[in-house]
Measured scan of single mutants.
Amino acid sequence: MNLTVNGKPSTVDGAESLNVTELLSALKVAQAEYVTVELNGEVLEREAFDATTVKDGDAVEFLY
């Protein structure tokens, strides 16, 4: 899956889609429990991480 992460191209191997929690784990995001996630310009509530799917071509920003 090809994404733009914090403005840079990134690839997650072996996945066509992941939820936000899985993406944080796959990318080994440090202190993931404290990060705010913006997906395609929309800031996500932490409670929505498990239910929100990240797909090929999406833009993700991790805000600390």
Rank of each mutant, 00 (worst) to 15 (best):
M1E: 01
N2S: 12
N2H: 13
N2A: 10
L3Q: 02
L3F: 07
L3H: 04
T4E: 04
T4D: 04
T4M: 13
T4N: 06
V5Y: 01
N6D: 06
N6L: 01
G7H: 05
G7S: 04
G7K: 05
K8E: 09
K8D: 06
K8Q: 11
K8A: 08
P9Y: 09
P9G: 05
P9A: 07
P9N: 06
S10C: 15
S10T: 15
T11W: 15
V12Y: 08
V12I: 14
D13C: 15
G14N: 10
G14M: 09
A15S: 09
A15M: 11
A15R: 12
E16L: 14
E16W: 14
E16Y: 13
S17G: 09
S17R: 11
S17K: 12
L18D: 00
L18A: 03
N19C: 06
V20Q: 00
T21Q: 07
T21D: 05
E22G: 08
E22Y: 04
L23W: 01
L23R: 00
L23H: 01
L24C: 04
L24V: 05
L24P: 03
S25F: 10
S25H: 12
S25Y: 09
L27G: 00
K28V: 06
K28W: 05
V29Q: 04
V29M: 06
V29D: 03
A30M: 11
A30T: 12
Q31P: 09
Q31Y: 14
A32Y: 10
A32T: 13
A32H: 10
A32P: 14
A32W: 14
E33H: 10
E33S: 10
E33P: 08
Y34F: 13
Y34W: 13
Y34P: 05
V35Y: 08
V35M: 10
T36F: 08
T36E: 07
T36V: 13
V37P: 02
V37Y: 01
V37D: 00
E38Q: 15
E38W: 15
E38V: 15
L39M: 04
L39W: 04
N40E: 02
N40D: 02
N40T: 01
G41R: 03
G41W: 03
E42Y: 11
E42D: 09
E42N: 12
E42A: 10
V43T: 10
L44I: 15
E45D: 13
E45S: 11
E45A: 12
E45Q: 11
R46Y: 08
R46G: 05
R46D: 04
R46C: 06
E47D: 14
E47R: 06
E47T: 10
A48C: 11
A48T: 10
A48V: 10
F49G: 04
F49Y: 11
F49D: 00
A51L: 13
A51Y: 15
A51Q: 13
A51I: 14
T52W: 05
T52A: 06
T52S: 05
T52H: 06
T53D: 08
T53V: 13
T53A: 09
V54Q: 02
V54R: 01
V54D: 00
V54C: 04
K55S: 08
K55N: 09
D56A: 09
D56K: 05
D56C: 06
D56I: 04
D56P: 08
G57R: 04
G57A: 04
G57Y: 04
D58I: 01
D58F: 02
D58M: 05
F62W: 09
Y64Q: 08
Y64F: 10
